[in-house]
Simulated scan of single mutants.
Amino acid sequence: MGKSVQKLTDNVSLIASKESWIEGLAIQQLIKTSELPGMHAVAGMPDLHPGRGYPIGAAFFTEGRIYPALVGNDIGCGMSLWQTNTKLAKLNVDKLAKRLSDVEQPLDESWHTLISERKHELAITQTGFDSALGTIGGGNHFAEFQAIEEVFDQQALLALGLQPKQLQLLVHSGSRGLGQAILVKHIAEHNHDGLEVVSDAFTDYMAKHDEALRWAQLNRELIARRFLQAIRAGGEEVLDVNHNLVSQSQIAGQAGWLHRKGATSSDQGAVMIPGSRGDYSYLVKPTAEQNVNLRSLAHGAGRKWKRGECQGRLSHKFKKEDLYRTAFGSRVICNDKTLLYDEAPQAYKDCQTVIDDLVDAGLVTVIAKLKPVLTFKTQGTCG
C-alpha cells in the first residue's frame, strides 16, 4: 500500500495522503462512529466530508448489528452510466439544452406500461412514490452528458462497449421520498440505535431497504430513458452501482454487514467517480486487494464547503449568469439560484486528487477520463 493509506486507530483507516485536505470534523465523526457497539472496522475515502452526525464518503463493517442511520435517507443512491448513439461530432449543445424543458415532471401515461413491467421484474410492490420515478431530485443529484476526453486502458474501455466518439450520459440519483420515509420510520421507532440481526425489526428494515435499492435502480433507468427520449437518441446502460446501502459481506475472511455512506462498491467491476460539474469524471477499475478500504471507493470529489455558505463565498466573484458555463465551456441547467451556488465547482474538491489517492493506495487503475458537456440540475424557479 502507498502513502495514501493512513491508520488512524486500530479499526479506522483513511484512504487519503497527508497532503489531501480532509476536514477535521469528518475525521472526528469517522472515529466516533468506530466506537458504536458491534463496529468492527471503518474506512474513510479520499472524498470524506462531514455529514449530520456521521461522515459521508466512508464504509463501516459491523458484526451482529446494523445501523440504518449510517446508510441514511437516500437508500440506493448511485451512479448509472449510459452510452448514447449520438455522435459527438454532430452534437449541438444549445439544441440539446432546449430539448430538456420537460424532464422533471412526473412521467406521463405513455410510461406506465414500462414502469409496471419493470416494477414486476424488479419485485417492487410499493406504489406510494410512483410519481417520483424518473425524477432526479435536488442536492447533489444530476444528469450529465459527457464526452470521453482521454483513454488510459483501451482494452478495458472496449470490454465495457464504450466508444470515445459517442456522447455518454451519467445519472446520479436514488430512492427519493421512499428512502426518506424508511429512515424516518426507523428513527421514530429506534432512534439511532442499531438493529440486532436476529430481530424482527432488522428483517423488516432490510426488506424495505432492499426494495428501495431496486426502486433507486429503476429510478436511474427511467431518468436515463427520459433524457434519451428528450434528445431523440437511443442508448444502452453500461453500469449501475449504488453508494448508500448495507449488505452482507466478507472482509478478510470475517463475515459481517458492510454499510456504505457515499462510498461506491469496489467489488462490482468498473465504476464511475464523478467530479463537480466543472471537473472531470473518472471511469476506474478496482484492483484485486480491497480489504483495507472495506471493498469501497470514493463516490465523487467530495464537498469542500458546506451547503448554504457557497453563495456568500462566491456571489462577489460570480454573477448567477457566470455559473451557467464552466471552465470547459460546458453548459449548466440549474434555475434554482441557491442550488446553482451550492453545487458550484468551487464547493468541491479536485477530483484528480481523489483519484490520485486511490491509485497511490493501489486500489484502482484509471480506464478513462470524461469531460462534462451539459449538466442538468433543475429547471426550477430562480430565487
Score class of each variant (00 low, 15 high):
225 R>W: 11
104 E>Q: 11
303 R>L: 09
56 I>S: 00
82 W>P: 10
283 L>V: 00
248 Q>T: 12
146 Q>E: 10
342 D>Q: 01
8 L>H: 01
176 R>D: 04
316 H>P: 14
287 T>L: 15
187 I>N: 01
246 V>S: 09
103 V>G: 10
292 V>L: 12
268 Q>D: 05
43 A>C: 15
361 A>V: 00
353 T>S: 14
47 D>F: 07
132 A>Y: 14
372 P>I: 09
372 P>S: 01
303 R>T: 01
133 L>C: 12
283 L>M: 07
249 S>L: 00
200 D>F: 11
115 I>A: 13
15 I>G: 01
121 E>K: 11
195 L>E: 00
65 R>Y: 01
239 L>I: 08
108 D>K: 12
354 V>F: 03
365 T>H: 03
156 A>F: 05
248 Q>D: 14
274 P>Q: 07
115 I>E: 02
255 A>C: 02
13 S>P: 01
131 S>Q: 08
252 A>L: 06
378 T>N: 11
27 I>D: 07
318 F>G: 03
1 M>Y: 11
326 T>N: 05
357 D>E: 05
21 W>I: 14
31 I>R: 05
279 D>G: 05
328 F>E: 05
328 F>W: 11
160 L>P: 06
58 A>R: 00
36 L>Y: 13
101 S>T: 13
58 A>M: 13
111 W>H: 07
83 Q>G: 00
277 R>H: 09
262 G>R: 00
117 E>Q: 12
71 V>S: 07
253 G>L: 02
173 S>K: 04
337 K>V: 13
134 G>A: 00
124 I>W: 04
251 I>Y: 12
151 V>W: 13
367 I>N: 09
215 W>P: 03
94 D>W: 04
246 V>I: 13
147 A>S: 15
272 M>T: 05
77 C>L: 05
68 P>V: 01
286 P>Y: 10
316 H>G: 13
21 W>V: 15
339 L>A: 07
353 T>G: 14
306 K>R: 15
